[in-house]
Design a protein around this nucleic acid. Structure first.
Lengths: 193, 193
DNA sequence: ATTTGAATAATTGATTCAAAAGTTCAAATA
DNA sequence: TATTTGAACTTTTGAATCAATTATTCAAAT
């Protein structure tokens, strides 16, 4: 098996354990056992436990982002792309229990403060994806000619706020309805006609 | 001096100390010293330190809410009211250093989760104020006939998100511009024409 | 190039204990 | 009677210790 493939296996196993037991309760040996190797061998792939955690999470977030990026390419106009980004980002999380459980364990994976974002790179990439959709919408004349940078920053913050409300601090309440109404409001504020 | 007035004095002194030193580093004796009494006498006004903290914060939040509520009454139409609520809520915080410092010390005063909101009552009151403005806007035909409850919940969450970005997790970044662009977007999504 | 076992280093959790802070209350004051 | 106080009492905190667990390294083996 390729080294890269084995890394994947390790990250996947680690993510599942971290999601269920949290960072502290998960030992490096637990992870090693799950992939069938000794704990010392884990250190051949990552330099320490912290890196094991961060790379596991980054890996999962990248997969998430790349899935949405691929789905965007299936349609051509900006309005449809915007709806896909908005809706599918949430649905993906619904379908991936480990990642969802992890977000609920580690509240700070999603923060409203970029400067303390441990996963800045992948989150920034997701934001750039959204920015590109908005830019395209303006170019097509479908969106109002807004300040792209600041509107993107605003919408990304709203997106994080939704994630927190829906998965991190869920009241089991009607966040679905709030999502629909909020999206409609923003869509109306963004689209001409 | 009235008992109620002395309570005010105590809450004001306590808020200032809590804001500067945090809950733990502030002792009941510190508060007593600041208002010129003995710590045992503090217990004539509140039942314990926790209540001293909560009532101090509630008191400050109520003053904040009531100030905005009074300002709203100076204009008659919903659009203007909406702008006043949006803008003045932030400006008030700029003008009140103790309260601002407190929010930065105790991150959970503003939470996106109503069920774990220790100041639910006053925050809920603020949300009702916003809801009333939206309802009025719809009645006047100025706003789209949105789902009042869920749009209010959405807008209040956006408001909390802004507070967190601007004061709790401030990067010193361009949250002003983001605020302006976000407000414009939402205003356009809310108002007819 | 990858894996392992064994040794070492660092962290955690339980326990103790004295000092500091929180709380109560009977007596004093106004 | 409403408010305040000093002195006791109770609870919490922080530092120190120590054993057990966990993280990390590395030379030798595959």
């Amino acid at each position: 098996m390729e080294k890269a493939d084995k890394k994947q296996k390790i990250f996947q196993a680690a993510l599942s354990l971290f999601a269920h037991y949290g960072y502290r309760k998960t030992t490096v040996e637990d992870v090693a056992d799950k992939v069938g190797m000794t704990k010392s061998n884990i250190y051949f792939y990552v330099k320490n436990k912290q890196e094991l955690y961060e790379k596991s999470v980054s890996h999962a977030l990248e997969k998430w982002r790349d899935t949405i990026a691929a789905e965007i390419e299936t349609v051509s106009n900006a309005k449809e792309k915007f709806v896909i980004v908005s809706r599918r980002s949430f649905e993906y999380l619904n379908d991936h229990e480990d990642l969802r459980a992890l977000l609920m364990k580690d509240h700070d994976i999603f923060t409203l403060s970029p400067s303390e974002d441990r996963f800045y790179e992948v989150n920034h990439g997701a934001m750039m994806m959204l920015k590109e959709v908005i830019r395209q919408g303006i170019d097509e004349g479908a969106f109002y000619p807004v300040d792209v940078d600041h509107v993107t920053e605003f919408l990304f913050s709203v997106y994080i706020m939704f994630l927190i409300k829906a998965y991190v601090k869920s009241d089991g309440s009607s966040s679905d309805r709030m999502f629909e109404e909020g999206l409609a409001l923003i869509f109306r504020g963004l689209c001409k006609i």
